[in-house]
Design a protein around this nucleic acid. Structure first.
Lengths: 200, 200
DNA sequence: CGCGACGTTGATTTGCCTCAACGATTGTGG
DNA sequence: CCACAATCGTTGAGGCAAATCAACGTCGCG
C-alpha cells in the first residue's frame, strides 16, 4: 500500500469492498480523482447545470434535492462520509440537472468526471464491476424507499429512517428529513411529540 | 447471426442495445437461458421464496408487488415484452423475497439464474457492463419515481404514467395502476372522471 | 346462465397540509 | 461582547386530498 493521505485511503477502502486492485491500478485510479471542498450552504450543483462528476464524500454531509415551481423542496438523498453522490441522470446522459446538491456541513470530496470514468473503465475494466455493484445497491435502496412510501404511514417511515441512517439523522436538520420522507416539518414535529404507537 | 427463434432474437437485440457480442459469445449467452411460461394469475415468485433468477419477458405482462399484513398490495413494477424482471434484493443477496411476481397475462420468459450470471460475468466480462447499464437505468427510473411521488399530486403522477408507459397502461387493470401510484382504485376512478385540470 | 372480478359512485372519515404565531438557538456585524 | 436577525423547531386552528366503506352495474368466462 502506498503512503497516501487519509482521504485517499478512505476511497480505496470503499473500492476494496467490491473489487481488489493492484498497486498500479490503485495509483491510476487515484490519479483520476480531483479534490474539492464545499462549505455549508454552498452548492456543489445547481439545477440547470450539467453534472459531469460523481463525488465521493471523505468528510462532512451533503443533500440532493428537487425544487418545484412553488419553491417546495423534495430531498432525494443525503450523503455523508463514505458515500458517493451525483445527479445520476445528468451524469449518465450528459443532460442538464433537475436537482441541486448543497453542503449541509463543510465537506470534502474526491471527484471523478465522466470522461475520467470512461477512461477508468477502459484501462481497468474491473471498475465496470465496481460501479455495477454501486448502481445495484442504489437501485435496491430506491426500490425499498418506493415500497415503504407506498405501504407505510409517515410515522413508521420516520422510525425506519432513524434506524437505517442514525448517522445522517444526527447531522441534518429535521426539516430536511421531513422533505426526504415527503411530509412537512410541522407534521414531523407532531409525530415526534406523540407517544410512539405500540402494538398491543 | 444464427438461425434462432424469435424470442432469442429479442433478447439478443436487447443486449445489443448496450454491448456487442461475437457469435460465440451470443451462443454461450443463449445457452445459459432457460425458457419458462407463466399463465395469467400464476405466480412466478411467491414472497418468502428465494428468487434466484432474473427473467427477460418475450411475451405477455407481469407485475411485482408487496402485500402487507392487511392484504393491501403495493405494485413495485410491471414488465412487458423486452423488459427484465426479478426481486433484485432477493436475487443479489440470496435472501428470501419480500415481494411476489405474478402473470397479468399468459407470458413467456427467458431466465438467467444467479449462478449462470456469475459464470457469464467470468466468461464474457462485457456482461458486467451490460448489467451495469441495466442497473443504472433501473436506478434512474426508481429515483425519478421517488421524486414524482414526493413532488406531484396523484392526478399528475397518473398522467405521467400514461405518457411514459402507454403500452403497460393498455394491458393492466386499473386497480394495479392505482396500487403502483400509491392510491386506491376508487380514487383513481374519481380522478379519471373529472375533467383534466387545465393551467389557465 | 350465473358467478366473480372489475370499475364506478357517493357518504363519511382521516392523515397530512396550510397558515400563523411563538420560543429557542445560532450566527453575525457593530 | 452584545444586539439583532435569521434559522429552526413547535404548537394550534382550520382545510383539503385521499382513504374507507358500502352499494351497484357491467362484463368476461366457466
Amino acid at each position: 500500500m502506498y503512503a497516501v493521505s487519509k482521504k485517499f485511503q478512505l476511497v480505496l477502502q470503499n473500492v476494496a469492498k467490491h473489487i481488489s486492485l493492484t498497486d498500479g491500478e490503485a495509483e491510476f485510479f487515484l490519479s483520476q480523482l480531483q479534490e474539492k471542498k464545499i462549505k455549508k450552504k454552498e452548492f456543489l450543483l445547481h439545477a440547470g447545470q450539467s453534472c459531469n462528476v460523481i463525488s465521493f464524500v471523505t468528510a462532512g454531509a451533503l443533500r440532493a434535492f428537487y425544487e418545484d415551481a412553488d419553491d417546495k423542496q423534495s430531498t432525494i438523498m443525503f450523503a455523508i462520509t463514505d458515500w458517493w453522490i451525483t445527479d445520476i441522470t445528468s451524469f449518465l446522459n450528459r443532460t442538464s440537472a433537475l436537482i441541486s446538491i448543497e453542503g449541509v456541513e463543510d465537506s470534502e470530496l474526491l471527484q471523478l468526471s465522466n470522461d475520467a470514468l470512461e477512461l477508468l473503465y477502459s484501462k481497468v475494466p474491473k471498475f465496470e464491476r465496481f460501479f455495477r455493484v454501486l448502481m445495484q445497491n442504489s437501485y435496491v435502496r430506491e426500490q425499498t424507499r418506493v415500497l415503504q412510501t407506498l405501504s407505510l404511514p409517515a410515522e413508521q417511515r420516520y422510525q425506519n429512517f432513524l434506524k437505517k441512517y442514525p448517522a445522517i439523522a444526527k447531522k441534518v436538520p429535521q426539516k430536511h428529513i421531513a422533505s426526504y420522507l415527503g411530509i412537512t416539518p410541522e407534521f414531523l414535529s407532531f409525530l415526534r411529540k406523540k407517544k410512539p404507537t405500540r402494538i398491543s
